[in-house]
């Protein structure tokens, strides 16, 4: 078990103490400091801006509620991020429709280059592609690539089989790959036209 104690900056320590004392200015400062980053985390797990904001709001409410329980065995930002991910997972569990929104056959692959293809798309466009994934695929993709979880851990967290997690990830990646190629194709046609 990892018992590493992270030394927090003075500012973080001060802010945490303020939030424990329900100090509104400290809470506001924490929000201002971490909301922009956490907004992206929320957006990765949601299908649109509104849903992302809901996750962000719920997440920060939990942060302020349970901030006294924060132990310095990881960074403060990491702890907040974990809470955001949990909020997103909780939201997913409430959703009934888990079908994919992008068909597997949306595009054929005619591209041989790799990193340049993704490099040509902006971060926002890539984020949009993730949001277009079905909740199940999006969740597995995020947990695997962004949170660094293993399939076994994802399976426990989402209450699915490990094999399902693997196949969901493969499917998600395939969808994203096709979507990227499709997007570039359209961009190229527009550019040439």
């Amino acid at each position: 078990m990892n018992n590493t104690v992270i030394i927090l900056s003075d500012k973080e320590t001060r802010l945490i103490a303020g939030c424990i004392a329900f100090n509104r200015s400290s809470q506001s400062e924490v929000y201002t400091l971490f909301a922009p980053k956490m907004m992206i985390v929320s957006m990765r797990y949601s299908k649109n801006q509104e849903e992302a904001e809901e996750i962000l709001q719920d997440g920060f409410m939990r942060v302020f509620k349970f901030i006294a329980q924060f132990k310095q065995d990881g960074s403060f930002e990491g702890w907040i991020r974990k809470i955001m991910v949990n909020c997103a997972l909780q939201k997913l569990r409430n959703q009934v429709n888990l079908r994919p929104v992008v068909s597997l056959d949306t595009a054929s692959n005619n591209y041989s280059s790799n990193i340049d293809i993704v490099g040509d798309l902006s971060g926002k466009e890539l984020l949009k592609l993730i949001q277009n994934l079905s909740p199940a695929y999006r969740m597995v993709f995020n947990l695997y690539h962004f949170e660094g979880l293993k399939h076994r851990e994802i399976a426990v967290l989402l209450k699915i089989e490990e094999g399902t997690s693997k196949s969901n990830l493969a499917q998600a990646k395939r969808i994203l790959q096709n979507a990227v190629i499709q997007n570039l194709k359209i961009a190229k046609q527009t550019h040439n036209g």
Binding site: A35, P36, K37, M39, I40, M43, R44, E53, L56, Q57, N109, Y111, S112, S113, N114, I115, I117, V118, G119, L121, G123, K124, L126, L127, I130, F141, Y144, H145, F146, K173, R174, L176, Q177, V180
Partner: peptide, 28 residues
């Protein structure tokens, strides 16, 4: 299908998205 693109797409997405920030609406 390009094997490299399929294998690495996750990492590329991560590299591109991870540093991003976005301000939520003020009403939030």
């Amino acid at each position: 299908m390009d094997k490299n693109l399929h294998d690495d797409i996750g990492d590329w997405f991560q590299q591109k998205i991870e540093p991003m920030t976005e301000l939520p609406r003020e009403e939030l």
